[in-house]
Amino acid sequence: MTKLRFSRKQLCIPYALFLILFVVFPMLMILFYAFTGEGADGGLTFTFANFADFFTSRAKLSTLLMSITIAIISTAICLIIAYPLAYILARSNLKRKNVLLMIFIMPMWINFVLRITALRELLDLVGLLGTENYLNTIIGMVYDFLPFMLLPLYTTLEKLDKSYLEAAADLGGNKFTVFTRVTFPLSMPGVISGITMVFMPSMTNYVVSDTLSNFNITILGKLIDEYFTTYDNWHMGSMISIILLVIIFLTLLATGGFKEDKSNARGANLW
């Protein structure tokens, strides 16, 4: 009788096939679509037209610029709020620090479309809805992505070896120096992880901008959506995706974000 025999290594075969079929191949299709177009005879031809079209279209370039601006502002606000907050939470002497942290990041587990529509109601009540589209969008991005910034910052600050800080103080550093020369540089991995987790979704999560600007603001993610669903031009939509991928790649390169483990920022180890 032959028994079913498999080695432990072979267990990764279904996952490997899954990744090739549903991650790698689809990404290659985006590349293919981005550099092809419908020829005169209706067939597909290789072309740089989509690329040229994007960089000569004023509307598209201004969408790109505006998305980057919204993302930079949202990321900066998240950092400004989350850093001191993470510092306070990580340094607090309370016994149940984790529960306190939990209260701050709990919304992460509630459906974001529902939270954003709740925020929409609040903005409507205070009279901002329909009048301050850009402000509302930025408030929404901060509201949605603040936990992604807070969590990695808290984790690095919490793990930070206190003896370094004591050493710095013993060697004559005042509180300000200790912070700028020791604490902050040591927390950089958390800062970088937080920035990469907030920046990209703030450029692309169009549910937030649509809901809070009454569909008046088009960010880059929305533009891709429109080329697929409204204009039915999948080639242009793919080209914009490639440009977005290049931006993601550049931000990772600039921040050294490749080394970071992204799992933590979504609270992988909190359950």
């Binding site: 990744l19 990209m200 979704p201 692309t204 999560n205 891709i224 697929f228 995706s241 991928l245 992204k262």
Partner: peptide, 21 residues
């Protein structure tokens, strides 16, 4: 490395890549 792609990628890009496939 490939496992990181859906994690880092913008969701809209993942979405349209699947639509194409």
């Amino acid at each position: 490395g490939i496992s990181q792609i859906p994690i880092i990628n913008a969701e809209i890009v993942t979405a349209i890549s699947l639509a194409l496939l």
